[in-house]
Write a protein that binds this DNA or RNA. Structure first.
Length: 196
DNA sequence: CCCTGATTCGC
DNA sequence: GCGAATCAGG
């Protein structure tokens, strides 16, 4: 594919709208985001109000030496980085199997006894509200559709057909989307008033 | 890890 | 001019 006027125009339009290079590339087809970025630069349109990622970093200007540049050797990748590997602060119990749902039938899925889950209580009302919102617009994907980066929060009753997985984009690293991470990972807390 | 844009440089 | 590879940051 080449940069026809039309394609360049679309590129400009989308870039102007704040679309990401990858989105533009996907739209144009036949080009990678790198191609898009490269073109953007060649066209001279660059800095726009970026949201993130954009290297707002005032990189050292490439002042090419007029003659006989000292050749700073840009190729440099030391930093072996030993990787300290800090201990992960075990998060609260993520729903091993079934988190709470609107109407959990009285069925307890066979298997290990469910660990004490931070049920509806102890969770910020806001987080729950957001989850409810999310669950209404969740992608509702099936088990087969789960991927490394789809929210794996189960919704509904696994014993009925009304069962799906959230499916929204996961929050990097986590197994759930942002909303579900909010209720899945509790900072541990109030529950010690277990008079016993 | 995923994603973003920026730069470099051989073609 | 083009864009993959690479870099740098979130």
């Amino acid at each position: 594919m080449s940069w026809t006027d039309e394609r360049v125009e679309l590129l400009k339009k989308m870039w102007g709208e704040g679309q990401s290079a990858s989105q533009i590339a996907k739209e144009l087809g036949g080009v990678t985001r790198n191609a898009v970025i490269g073109k953007v630069h060649r066209l001279g349109l660059s800095n726009r109000a970026t949201s993130a990622g954009a290297a707002a970093a005032p990189k050292a200007a490439k002042a090419e030496a007029p003659k006989a540049a000292p050749a700073p050797k840009p190729k440099a990748k030391p930093a072996p980085k030993p990787e300290p590997k800090a201990a992960e602060p075990a998060p609260a119990q993520p729903p091993a199997t079934v988190p709470m749902s609107p109407a959990r039938k009285a069925i307890i899925p066979a298997g290990q006894p469910l660990p004490p889950q931070p049920s509806a209580n102890e969770i910020s009302p806001e987080a729950l509200a957001r989850v409810n919102e999310v669950e209404k617009t969740a992608k509702k994907i099936s088990l087969m559709e789960l991927t490394e980066r789809t929210c794996k929060w189960p919704i509904g009753d696994p014993a009925t057909p009304d069962f799906w997985f959230c499916g929204l984009p996961v929050q990097q690293g986590k197994p759930y989307c942002e909303a579900h991470v909010g209720v899945a990972f509790q900072p541990m807390s109030a529950r010690r008033d277990r008079r016993r």
